[in-house]
Design a protein around this nucleic acid. Structure first.
Lengths: 112, 112
DNA sequence: ACCATGTACCTTGTAAAGCAAGGTATGTGT
DNA sequence: ACACATACCTTGCTTTACAAGGTACATGGT
């Protein structure tokens, strides 16, 4: 139900996961799913976008137990992008929290 | 450019602003604009949604210097919704920050 | 009288993103 | 032969933010 909140953050999350080491889409779903909900239908189009932006590059690796895996590596530009996104993310969180602070003093003790 | 990040948070922000006191759409744009970017084209449809969900109710007030203002008040359900949204927001921020933490140890010192 | 400006409301169409549902193919175990 | 896990992918839907445009009232300047 918090689908909307994720908009715009998943790119950053995937880049962050890739900063910890190369991975492939199917595995990334598993990795991120430990912390947050994300589905394959989200991941595959997302990876295409990241590649279109040249934030990641790919290489194929045969698997001993299944079809080949399409690994993704962060590019230098991807690393820069991650850094930028994290900055924007922190700014945004601060902005929202500041607005939430508006409500802090109000309505809590409504006894006349 | 961080349009996507806002998805899902603006409802909450508006409800929070209304928790600090009744207001009308045009004024809310001004209030929130002190902290974050938001446009009228976003606000008016948003207010309709809030009302459709019964999180706010409205009343008209004539203005001395312009057309009548459509004031919005938080309903009891709106207050509950705000509380719920804030909880989800905090959870979500924690989740994202946890994922960003994955990258913390990697790639920072890439010597050898 | 006329017009610009500020206030205040609103709608339409576009773009982006997440997701459920479905589909394909490979390898392993029964 | 069949089921299952792995691993890839696409289509169509939904929600949301926003730019652009439109209406109407009140005030001040010329």
């Amino acid at each position: 139900m918090k689908t909307q909140l994720k908009k715009g953050t998943l790119d950053m999350c995937v880049l962050a996961a890739l900063a910890a080491g190369d991975s492939y889409a199917y595995e990334l779903v598993g990795i991120l799913s430990r912390t947050m909900e994300i589905s394959e239908g989200t991941m595959y189009p997302l990876m295409r976008r990241l590649q279109a932006e040249a934030w990641v590059s790919t290489y194929l690796v045969e698997s001993a137990s299944g079809p080949s895996r399409k690994y993704y590596t962060l590019t230098a530009e991807g690393r820069r992008q991650l850094s930028w996104m994290q900055q924007e993310w922190r700014e945004f969180v601060n902005e929202v929290n500041a607005v939430l602070g508006l409500a802090a003093g109000a309505g809590t003790g409504e006894a006349s």
